[in-house]
């Protein structure tokens, strides 16, 4: 376990956070060892064998004042360092680059000022970054341990955090507000690169087919991906990843049958989900979406699923 990793300065927030940590930790360790030491000493020194008769002492006002005032001063010192590290986190420089972060069950979208949307957080080194956080379903929390930043993504609320990445490399982005089934898998990467490389990445703006985006939005809006994952993991229903064109064994009235998941099958499964249920998954969990989605929307969904290799 590399304990010292906590002092590496991957962002400009590391210093303030770690300083406040070290101040508190240092004072605390002193008192923990001191008080425990004194207590153990007393227990041994004043054992009834060594000291058969206790001396009755009711208290001391001087001592009560000392150990009220001294801790009070020390906790105010701790408060000050915590406040100082935190104050910096709320003062965003004017030239910060804005990135919109959209959290949803269970993934992140990072949307750049030029409209580019990424699943990972690409960042230029030494430039102030402001992340504007929001969520489209429940509360999530964006956490980049190496950068010492964390802020909740709350639906219909605009939260933010900012930092300057100071070291090139790949860092973990995690969700730290419990958000349901796949909370612990809701990760992404923060990739810090040189400004030039970042510019190239940002400019490589291949517009995605609009029909595809619409399909994904429909899947999210109807909570389809709560049961059907986009990354191949098994949830309540089969994953959407690699589904299109694959061969599946389904049960039709209890009889096994092999089908190819073509567009017709996909559309049929959205409209009549319990007619052909993939073997190994429960029937009658999903309801028909005939009345909830238009034919056009269902086609958009099917088109999107074709792109999920």
């Amino acid at each position: 376990m590399n304990f010292l990793q906590i002092f590496s300065g991957a962002s400009n927030m590391v210093e303030g956070v770690d300083r406040s940590f070290v101040v508190i930790f240092g004072i605390s360790l002193f008192f923990l060892i001191g008080i425990t030491g004194v207590m153990v000493y007393f227990i041994i020194r004043y054992d009834k064998k060594r000291n058969p008769k206790a001396t009755q002492i009711e208290g001391s006002n001087t001592l009560e004042i000392v150990w009220t005032v001294v801790p009070l001063v020390l906790v105010m010192v701790m408060f000050y360092y915590g406040y100082r590290g935190y104050a910096k986190m709320r003062e965003v420089p004017d030239d910060a680059m804005n990135i919109k972060v959209i959290a949803y069950m269970w993934d992140w979208d990072f949307e750049y000022e030029n409209g580019k949307v990424s699943k990972d957080l690409y960042l230029p080194i030494d430039k102030p970054i402001k992340l504007n956080l929001t969520s489209i379903d429940v509360v999530h929390s964006l956490y980049i341990p190496s950068f010492r930043v964390k802020e909740d993504a709350v639906p219909r609320k605009d939260n933010y955090l900012w930092f300057i990445p100071q070291m090139e490399g790949e860092y973990e982005v995690l969700c730290t507000e419990y958000c349901g089934l796949r909370h612990s898998f809701m990760g992404a990467k923060a990739i810090v690169m040189k400004q030039d490389n970042f510019n190239i990445w940002l400019a490589d703006f291949t517009p995605v087919d609009s029909g595809t985006i619409k399909g994904l939005e429909i899947l999210r809006a109807n909570a389809c991906i709560g049961c059907h994952s986009l990354d191949g993991s098994k949830l309540v229903g089969p994953s959407f990843q690699g589904l299109f064109g694959a061969s599946r064994t389904v049960l039709v009235d209890g009889v096994e049958k092999s089908v190819i998941a073509d567009e017709k099958y996909l559309i049929h499964s959205i409209k009549e989900p319990n007619a052909e249920v993939v073997k190994g998954y429960p029937a009658n969990v999903m309801q028909s979406y005939t009345k909830l989605l238009t034919d056009e929307q269902i086609t958009d969904v099917a088109n999107y699923l074709k792109t999920l290799k």
Binding site: V17, F21, Y81
Partner: peptide, 10 residues
């Protein structure tokens, strides 16, 4: 503490 909590919260 405000600063160190940001790192270890949750």
């Amino acid at each position: 503490s405000l600063a160190s909590d940001v790192h270890v919260h949750d």
